[in-house]
Design a protein around this nucleic acid. Sequence first.
DNA 1: CAATAAATGCACTTCTATTGCATGGCTACT
DNA 2: AGTAGCCATGCAATAGAAGTGCATTTATTG
Lengths: 138, 138
Amino acid sequence: MNTIEVFLESKKVRPTAMRMLVYKYMTQSNVAKTLGDIENAFTKADRTTLYRTLKTFEEKGIVHQVDDGTGTIKYALCEAGCNCDIDRDLHLHFHCSNCRETICLTEHKIPQINLPDGYVAEDMNLVVKGICEHCSGQ
Amino acid sequence: MNTIEVFLESKKVRPTAMRMLVYKYMTQSNVAKTLGDIENAFTKADRTTLYRTLKTFEEKGIVHQVDDGTGTIKYALCEAGCNCDIDRDLHLHFHCSNCRETICLTEHKIPQINLPDGYVAEDMNLVVKGICEHCSGQ
DNA sequence: CAATAAATGCACTTCTATTGCATGGCTACT
DNA sequence: AGTAGCCATGCAATAGAAGTGCATTTATTG
Ligand SMILES: [Mn+2]
Ligand SMILES: [Mn+2]
Ligand SMILES: [Zn+2]
Ligand SMILES: [Zn+2]
């Protein structure tokens, strides 16, 4: 029983070999990954299985989708204690137009937005595009 | 010379029949439209022509794309005097999960976001999802 | 009017998301 | 241990939208 196995079971996800590999892969970098990225990271991986793995992870609160405006959905690990709650957990995402990577800025929560009367907010997405720390040569 | 014709020429866009129709259609509602929406609004319209029409409109500052996270790009008219400037013009978009419509809240600019050192912002997208004024029964 | 440039229409490609269905493997229960 | 049933996997196929190539039509210019 390694820690990944324990973690997945704590999230009510059966720790199959592929699921453990995907989870481990996601922990190894802090940038959001597309399905294609993950597929390419393994030589022998079926796209559908990965698709459903990510879907399961999302349903069980292990990952969240990141829509960075590139047209392909990305996935990133949720923080410990995250419930993808609109007030507590939603954070800024940054997409670098140079290296094309997207990272979670989990420390930067989405500021309070006031809406016109009658509008009810349920979810939110804030993406900033530009040049990342790495590419701006800092 | 009607007003649409004059307007398009002022934007350096040749006022063809289709372009005038599309522009007129866009002015008739304040919700963002997909290519498909526009295609369906006319009985005899070619998707490619519309696609390129919208692209031209975008390049000439007549419309802006709206990425509301549904997976299909939408288009909405720019305000008078809009330059799609990151500080002055970028505004909030609201997507209603009930009626599935997306509207520009042009009065609601995106608040100042502070980024970690080394990050440079060039563009931004803020979408709020929830229930719109109309659907919340106000 | 002829030459040129721009806009349009059709067909096709590409890319990603998503589903149906058959098979393999694990679990729970006897 | 044996077996029924559920869950995960893999393959194939579909759906949906974006984008491109090229031929044709329409507009502009001299
Ligand atoms: Mn994130
Ligand atoms: Mn808008
Ligand atoms: Zn970068
Ligand atoms: Zn609505």
